[in-house]
Simulated assay, not measured.
Amino acid sequence: MLPSNKRTRTQDHPRRRAHAYRGVASAALAGLMLATSACGSDEAVQGSAPATPDDLECFSGSLNGAGSSAQENAMTTWIAGYQSACEEARVYYDSIGSGGGRNQFIDGAVAFAGTDAAMDPDENADAMARCGGSDTINLPAYVVAIAVVFNLEGVDSLNLRPDTIAKIFNQDITNWNDPQIAQDNPHADLPDLPITQVNRADDSGTTENFTDYLAAAAPDSWPHDPSGQWPLTPRESAQGNSGIADTVSRAQGAIGYVEMSHLHGLSAANIGVGEEFVEITPEAAAQVVAGSPRREENVSEFDLALDLDYGTTEPGGYPLVLVSYETVCLDYPDEAEAERVKAFLRYVVSPEGQQEASAETDSTPVNDDLRADLLASIEAINS
């Protein structure tokens, strides 16, 4: 590690940074890094230069990641911010979906995976060969709500209880003027129109979080195990969050689910929580994440994967939440790769990196306590 306090550009040896920032969530996990597209480093966000820490550390060379399309917009922001200050660094991220990202990481094709579903113990075992015999760790990179989006002419606001959402996506409620929908929307002019459910075509962490929510919040109406792959023959399907958003926007009567930064002007339903309906906001999502413990099957003290309480009925919380992770090796066989991973992740969790992503995506920045845990885990990465 380098002792200097000024911004440094080194070949392979970035230094740990300590930061303080007022976070909106508690020490549970309010967002680290996330989102980006299948783009590379040359598609930087245009405009004024992003804010970067004074002690930002740079590497020269390239760093490759792949995975979550929910991270697409945030990752694009992080890559732009890092490369604007580190001209010799090139960071590439392919938003092929969480499952694809985990597979590429296990195969050694990328240095890190962006995933909306943390690596399970079996995947961790599969990745050991890639990680030189060490475990993987999951770093909560990005906390954001999942929106249930719909396209109904003349209807901008819609209240949907978990049971109703489950029956719609299980294709048990098939028309928009169904009495169960109408009961909670007495002032909406619901059309006599078939519902077109739109789900992900790819293996998706957003789908896994969404089906986790349905299984926990509406177990009597959602008879499927949580999975990254859609369990039903689809009415319509699309690739990635962007694909679902585009399909719903073009199809009257469509309904789908997307990570919040992919709303793009679409209407989002208010979700039933207990006796109330909660609007999608970063603050409401952060409330649920703040009350969630770490996952019991975490393989290491540095693994920060969470066990989200999707079935909460606490007032004001929005339980349809996505926590996206950066999955990395605890030990990398290649020292230069380890240092590049650490340098970039330090920027991602910095106050500046988190605030830049939040401004673009409505994600919830990490707070001081979570940042300390994340930095400790990043510092534990060895080569």
Rank of each mutant, 00 (worst) to 15 (best):
D122V: 01
D309S: 00
I378A: 02
D225C: 00
A166E: 09
D192S: 14
L193C: 05
D189R: 01
G67F: 04
N124S: 01
L193T: 06
A49N: 15
G311E: 08
Q229I: 07
G228E: 03
S84H: 15
P315T: 07
L374C: 02
R340D: 07
G67A: 11
I106L: 05
I137S: 10
N209M: 04
L63G: 08
R294L: 12
Q354T: 12
R15L: 01
F112Q: 04
P282G: 09
T196K: 14
E87Y: 04
G274H: 04
R130H: 12
T312V: 10
A286I: 13
E296I: 12
M128C: 00
D203V: 12
H264W: 01
R340C: 07
V198H: 06
R16E: 07
T211R: 07
S4M: 03
R9V: 14
P3C: 06
M1G: 05
G311P: 03
D116H: 08
T196G: 09
I244H: 06
M75H: 12
E339K: 01
P219Q: 02
T196A: 14
S261E: 13
W176E: 09
G274R: 04
T247I: 10
T313L: 09
W78K: 00
S37R: 08
N138P: 08
E208V: 03
N209Y: 02
E123A: 07
T281G: 08
N270L: 10
F277Q: 06
L374D: 05
I181M: 12
L29S: 09
W230D: 11
Y142V: 01
G311Y: 05
A109Q: 13
T207H: 00
S4W: 02
A80D: 14
A336K: 10
S363N: 09
L29Y: 10
F112R: 03
N382P: 00
P53V: 01
D203P: 04
D369Q: 11
E123K: 01
Y21P: 14
A286E: 15
P319F: 13
I106E: 06
S26V: 06
L370W: 13
